[in-house]
């Protein structure tokens, strides 16, 4: 019978060639995913464009010219045409990336922290606490997210800050709900009980086991929300509730150029193309991120 016990090193089951940390594994996988590379490159370019706008943009985004109104794409001095006030479209698109990306990312980041905290507390506490928190959250689901954002922005008044605030409020409930459902599932998992059996208190369990398992799924979900946030922000600007003219922001530009759609359809479509490209890149990246972060496959 004694030979059944393995002497060290006798059975060499194949193990990963080199042990590596979680994030380096994720990075390795992303690097091998062409979709992730493509989407990542587009986003990197967009962010670079936004950050270095003053240097990248060929002209002043606010300087108009009555003679050059609605010039088509490719006109001398206006590589992407001019808008209804004769401002350079290329420069406006580059400057617009600043507001649009900011409006896409900031509300999601805020909502990520607030929503996760609420969701994890609700999920871990369970019982009545959970019911009270989650039913309150459910109230927000009674409104369609666009309507909620519009209503809040309308009530708070137009402006960049208020638009950010109302978008944050819109994204807290879905993130909290995901955090809550993942945490609730975790609570009954064996490894949480195993942690309790080895003397871990509630705080340790939340810090180590709940956060470790919850943050991944929420992070992936939040990345996909960035594109929604951008579109909603553009919508707010479109309705005149977000950034105020004459500032360049893609949604606002789409709105003002709307009237020129029959005159210069290609120029009028450009801000829409930017919104589309950015949001689809975020979505593709979040998809790749999800499969890369699932270390069990």
């Amino acid at each position: 019978m004694a030979q059944a016990v393995l002497p060290p090193g006798e059975i060499e089951v194949e193990a990963p060639v080199k042990a590596q940390g979680y994030w380096s594994t994720v990075w390795q996988r992303l690097r091998r995913d062409p979709v992730a590379i493509g989407a990542g490159t587009v986003l990197l370019l967009l962010f670079g464009m936004a950050i270095f706008a003053p240097w990248v943009a060929p002209a002043d985004p606010l300087q108009g010219s009555m003679i050059d109104r609605l010039k088509p794409i490719g006109t001398e001095g206006y590589p992407l045409g001019a808008d209804e006030l004769g401002r350079d479209m290329l420069s406006r698109l580059i400057w617009g990336a600043r507001f649009s990306l900011l409006m896409g990312v900031t509300p999601v980041v805020f909502a990520f922290f607030i929503g996760s905290t609420i969701g994890i507390i609700a999920g871990y506490a369970g019982g009545i606490t959970n019911s009270v928190i989650m039913r309150t959250i459910d109230v927000f689901y009674a409104f369609p997210s666009v309507l909620l954002a519009v209503a809040l922005s309308g009530a708070l008044g137009a402006g960049f800050g208020n638009a950010l605030l109302s978008l944050t409020v819109v994204f807290v409930p879905p993130i909290a709900r995901i955090a809550e459902s993942v945490t609730t599932q975790l609570r009954s998992r064996d490894f949480v009980e195993a942690a309790r059996a080895s003397g871990a208190g509630a705080l340790t369990i939340i810090r180590v086991h709940v956060l470790g398992n919850v943050l991944g799924p929420i992070f992936v979900y939040a990345t996909s929300l960035i594109s929604v946030s951008m579109i909603l922000a553009s919508g707010l600007s479109f309705l005149g509730l977000g950034v105020r003219p004459p500032a360049a922001e893609w949604g606002l530009m789409l709105n003002t150029l709307r009237t020129a759609i029959y005159v210069q359809p290609w120029v009028a479509a450009l801000p829409g193309v930017m919104i589309f490209a950015t949001s689809i890149s975020f979505n593709l990246l979040s998809d790749s991120l999800r499969s890369a972060m699932d270390i069990k496959t």
């Binding site: 042990a19 979680y22 998992r189 064996d190 490894f191 009980e193 195993a194 942690a195 309790r196 059996a197 080895s198 003397g199 871990a200 208190g201 180590v208 086991h209 470790g212 398992n213 991944g216 270390i295 069990k296």
Partner: peptide
């Protein structure tokens, strides 16, 4: 008490479970 219980669990009495895959946290080495 709470503190003594935390020390007792794991320090005095430890437990192993039926399905090790479920009883180990999947996201940590």
């Amino acid at each position: 008490g709470n503190k003594a219980l935390a020390q007792f669990r794991g320090g005095e009495v430890a437990m192993i479970f039926q399905e090790p895959l479920l009883a180990l946290d999947p996201v940590y080495t």
